[in-house]
Design a protein around this nucleic acid. Structure first.
Length: 883
RNA sequence: GGGCGAUUAGCUCAGCUGGCUAGAGUGCCACGUUGACAUCGUGGAGGUCAUUGGUUCGAGCCCAAUAUCGCCCACCA
């Protein structure tokens, strides 16, 4: 006795159970198997203390689809999971937690703080992992990594040392982006420019020993405290005579030179530029050219320091206010204008960035960027969708050195040591005992840690064991595809590419498949502050993981953002329910002794051949779509095949056989039903792993689990073009008859004879072939085929078909006015078609230049419509006459 | 200031290298408790494919402009 599925589809009954089942059988665990081709994906590591959001759900669903598909296709599929220590974010949270306890990290000290952070990580670190499991991800948990693991740290250290010894990492005083709130330097990529309405102040600087003054323009008046010069363009007639003179800084009365530099744009502002080398990147460069030195006035907390004279101790924006007031009061303020400009904000905490000169560690980017650029330009690296290639190129072509040191504790501490006596820098895997230069034993280690992205950049090879020459590394590297959001191309994708090219000598992956962002139903970004976030776990709880996964990958195109709609989740759930019930139907009609026997292609009936042929097409199309990362199209194709072809037509067509007396035909139908259903589940498995596995476990099956079964392949011998034509013809006839009945308000229970008038022998055969279908699906009592209309009385509905006409004698049920109306509508429709086709065919250009196939198709159509039109008109005429 | 994307049915979106009557889901209307499924079935209404011009025998798709919305990049103070 074959056990059927429960009556209702309830994903909660089996999703967790099946995940355990897969885990227990180690189906996710990949082996180094030289007889198989590897397929490798590394998971973009979510923040260890984070929670699963829709972006993760989408991204991981895509990776899981690819992994499951390749696993079923005979590859040794490895998907490496892991988490990221997310230094700034995690450290901020721990600091926050300490603050609530009335403690600061400085009070605690480094050691104790790190203990706290590890504790925090242990506490929340498991969340995201369990949440991912709910989604059904088939990643290899035995290879799970964390960016702060010992071996990951070893890789980080190794890369740092290698780059340093090649001169690609250096330490220097440069203008960096300083976040006063996070208390650390950040890289350019971490600065978000926000367009904002500000003001621009024009300030008069008096000229020494003169009544003249020079007016400068600035959007940050507080930085005037740090001015070391005023610059004008050498060609500027207005100021030529002032070059070389001295200006007096208002309020603080410091003397500064007036210099000239091409950089100054005469047309902007007043044409005179104040130069603050310590707090502006451009000014810094001009300062270098003129040897102006440095004069820092804003400290690490964003307050004016002792160089700021009377403004010392003021917060930077407070200082701005006060300085503007004072300038006004003392008559230095020339004017104030509204001004739009882009203000840099800290990507994480949204604080306004302060450019500050600071001693930091940098990666020299130019030599690294070049190979990364080449790899893309010569086509080795494939970016999908293509348009993001431009972004990749643009970034690399305009790259600036990467500030990698962070004034944080939670992260990889730089393997750098300083001699307390002679300041010698030593980069080393272990702490040196003595200074390599002066021999002093007073050594201290660098306190800074590395940018989180420094370790993520190594992820494709560090997770596989590098710098050790592991078997995993040799077999699984390079990986096949990187699946991630387009929003981290700069942060991550590019850095992985150049790191891998530098360390491994090859690309970390061949393809980069970029997914869009998941927005709310109004197209707004989901965010905590807006409170419009939708928790994937809640969706899974109510609708099941399969429904969520399907929703996320259907009906959108790679790289495009999507809106999340509840209705769509419901639709996906309904689809799962449909498959569930179709499977129940098959199981309840399956005789146990039938399953062992295979079917013989010769015995198949038309509808069997049709569905097998359709399945064959679906297999080909879905595989092709997946190959091209057209996940949404693949999902749609399976959906249509299951719902339209299999459920709406095949199952309905086959019912008469299942309930009939012909034992052989009945058994054959069962076998085909089962055969197709099994392939359906295989095809759908990557998308909806749970329901398909659950159904599979109830179906008679050879492989122990669907997840490790064989992906279906296209078979030439399963192509049945003639049967497809037959069934498609019958389908369209049934639809036409149903349509006519519905329009005439004659319900399905009022059955009638269908008399077909057909002259064409081939069509006659088709209709005889389709008799069962007309009876079951078009409410036919029986069918009859005649050569002409003679002998038929006028009491019928006429349905004009291609090369045939169907008559439904329904006598007194027929409203003839309505019948005329219906046929007139049909006439109108045909008229429009005829006009279009005739127009095309009378166009000489079309007939002579279009491919013959296209022209012939139009000719066939013309003939078909003409014949149909004749019948419609004839019928209309007789109706009008009788009336 | 540059770049990119979007604009297709009431709504959300597909539409692969230009070629059947432009599709789906959802919503809407009508009918339906037929032995898988009302989380369903059958039928229907609903579109100048943003606008203009061009290329082509043929354009939702290619090209050029325009408009609106969104995103990204950017050291004009």
């Amino acid at each position: 006795m074959i056990e059927n599925l429960p009556k209702t589809y309830n994903p909660k009954d089996f999703e967790d159970r099946l995940y355990d089942f897969w885990m227990e059988n180690e189906y996710f665990v990949a082996q180094v198997d030289r007889n198989k081709e590897p397929y490798t994906i590394i998971m973009p590591p979510p923040n260890v203390t984070g929670d699963l959001h829709m972006g993760h759900a989408l991204n991981n669903t895509i990776q899981d689809i690819l992994t499951r598909w390749k696993r079923m296709s005979g590859y040794e599929a490895l998907w490496v999971p892991g988490t990221d220590h997310a230094s700034i974010s995690t450290e901020a949270r721990v600091v926050n937690k300490l603050a609530k306890e009335g403690k600061t990290k400085e009070e605690l000290g480094r050691e104790a703080f790190l203990e706290e952070a590890w504790e925090w990580t242990r506490l929340y670190g498991g969340n995201i992992k369990n949440q991912l499991k709910k989604l059904g991800v088939s990643c290899d948990w035995s290879r799970e990594r964390f960016t702060l693991d010992e071996d990951m740290s070893k890789a980080v250290e190794e890369v740092f040392i290698r780059l340093y010894s090649k001169g690609l990492i250096y330490r220097g005083d440069r203008i960096i982006n300083w976040c006063p709130d996070c208390g650390t330097a950040i890289s350019d990529a971490e600065v978000e420019h926000v367009e904002s309405h500000g003001q621009i102040w024009h300030i008069n600087y008096p000229i020494k020993d003169s009544d003249e003054r020079i007016t400068i323009a600035t959007t940050r008046p507080e930085t005037m405290l740090g001015d070391l010069a005023v610059a004008v363009n050498p060609e500027d007639e207005r100021y030529k005579h002032l070059i070389g003179k001295t200006a007096i800084l208002p309020l603080v009365n410091r003397e500064i030179p007036i210099i000239s530099d091409d950089y100054v744009d005469m047309s902007f502002g007043t044409g005179a530029l104040k130069i603050t080398p310590s707090h502006d990147p451009n000014d810094f460069e001009i300062g270098e050219r003129f040897n102006l030195g440095q004069y820092v006035v804003i400290d690490e907390k964003g307050y004016i320091n002792s160089n700021g004279g009377p403004y010392e101790g003021l917060e930077r924006f407070e200082a701005r206010k006060r300085i503007v007031e004072d300038l006004k009061e003392e008559g230095y303020l020339n004017q104030v204008k509204d001004h739009e400009n882009a203000v840099g904000h800290c990507e994480r905490c949204n604080t306004i960035i302060e450019p500050i000169i600071s001693k930091q560690w940098f990666v020299k980017m130019e030599p690294l960027a070049k190979p990364a650029l080449d790899a893309y330009k010569n086509g080795e690296l494939n970016i999908i969708p293509e348009r993001f290639g431009k972004i990749y190129v643009n970034w690399l072509e305009n790259i600036r050195d990467w500030c990698i040191s962070r004034q944080l504790w939670w992260g990889h501490r730089l393997p750098v040591y300083y001699c307390d006596d002679c300041n010698e820098i030593m980069v080393s895997r272990t702490e040196p005992n003595r200074c390599s230069k002066c021999g002093s034993d007073r050594i201290s280690r660098e306190t800074d840690t590395l940018d989180t992205w420094f370790s993520s950049a190594l992820w494709p090879f560090s997770t596989l064991g590098w710098p050790e020459e592991t078997e995993d590394l040799k077999y699984f590297f390079p990986t096949d595809v990187l699946v991630t959001g387009y929003d981290i191309i700069f942060f991550w994708v590019i850095r992985m590419v150049f790191s891998s090219l530098e360390q491994m000598g090859e690309l970390p992956f061949k393809d980069v498949f970029l997914n869009g962002l998941v927005n709310d139903s109004q197209g707004r970004k989901m965010s905590k502050s807006l409170g419009n976030g939708i928790d994937p776990l809640e969706i899974i709880d109510v609708y099941g993981a399969d429904a969520l996964r399907f929703t996320l990958v259907t009906g959108n195109t790679p790289g495009n953002d999507m809106r999340f709609h509840m209705e769509k989740v419901e639709a996906s759930r309904n689809f799962a329910n449909k498959l569930w019930n179709a499977s129940r139907f098959v199981l309840m009609n399956l005789d146990e002794d039938v399953v062992s026997k295979d079917f013989n292609l010769i015995d198949l009936e038309e509808e069997d051949k049709w569905i097998i042929s359709r399945l064959n097409d679906a297999i080909k199309a879905v595989t092709h779509n997946l190959d091209k990362y057209e996940i949404g199209l693949a999902a749609q194709k399976i959906y249509d095949f299951i719902w339209d072809d299999y459920c709406d037509w095949y199952i309905e067509m086959v019912k008469s056989r299942l309930y009939g007396d012909d034992q052989a035909s009945k058994e054959l139908a069962q076998r085909v039903l089962l055969y197709v259903l099994k392939d359906i589940n295989r095809l759908l498995h990557p998308f909806m792993p749970f329901i398909t596995e659950e159904i599979w476990q109830h179906l008679p099956h050879e492989e122990n689990a669907l997840i490790i079964s064989q992906w279906p392949v296209y078979k030439e011998e399963h192509r049945f073009e003639e049967s497809e034509k037959t069934i498609e013809y019958v389908k369209s006839a049934i639809k036409a008859i149903r349509n006519a009945r519905a329009e005439m308000n004659i319900g399905p229970f009022k059955k009638s004879m269908i008399i077909f008038v057909v002259e064409n022998e081939a069509i006659k055969d088709l209709i005889i072939e389709g008799k069962r279908y007309f009876i079951n699906l078009a409410s036919a009592e029986d069918i009859e085929i005649v050569n002409n209309k003679e002998g038929l009385d006028g009491d019928y509905i006429s349905v004009v078909l291609d090369k045939a006409e169907a008559f439904l004698p329904l006598k007194d049920l027929i409203d003839y006015d309505k019948e005329i109306e219906r046929l007139e509508k049909e006439e109108e429709r045909l008229q429009a078609e005829l006009k279009r086709v005739r127009g095309k065919l009378s166009n000489q250009g079309f007939v002579s230049k279009a491919p013959e196939k296209v022209v012939n198709a139009e000719r066939d159509k013309l003939k078909k419509y003409e014949e149909m039109m004749d019948k419609v008109l004839e019928r209309l005429e007789s109706l009008r006459r009788d009336k």
